[in-house]
Amino acid sequence: MIGLVQATEAIKLLVGFGEPLIGRLLTYDAIGMNFREVKLRRDPNCPLCGQNPRIKDLSIHMEGAGGQVCAVGDDGQGAPAASSAPAAKPGG
């Protein structure tokens, strides 16, 4: 289901029509068979795309770059969402 949503979004973006899922998170629950849409906002404190980005290259991903390859040092500015780990995980 999710893979098909991704394929559809890709086709829309490549051809250039429709409303892409930018700033919207579509969630899918197969058991209840529910789709929900959550609005997403840009985080002005985002270390990558925020107002004062700290990530300007991929060095953060290099081995030995402070333990966790993808984590950004905690500066106390993390949005509340930081505490809620993503519910969805492996594509597998």
Binding site: V5, Y28, L40, A88, G91
Partner: peptide, 17 residues
């Protein structure tokens, strides 16, 4: 174009710079 699934749940969104 981002997607992820776990068991019976999934999500998709588009990250456009």
């Amino acid at each position: 174009v981002h997607g992820s699934i776990f068991q019976f749940e999934g999500m998709a969104t588009v990250f456009a710079p």
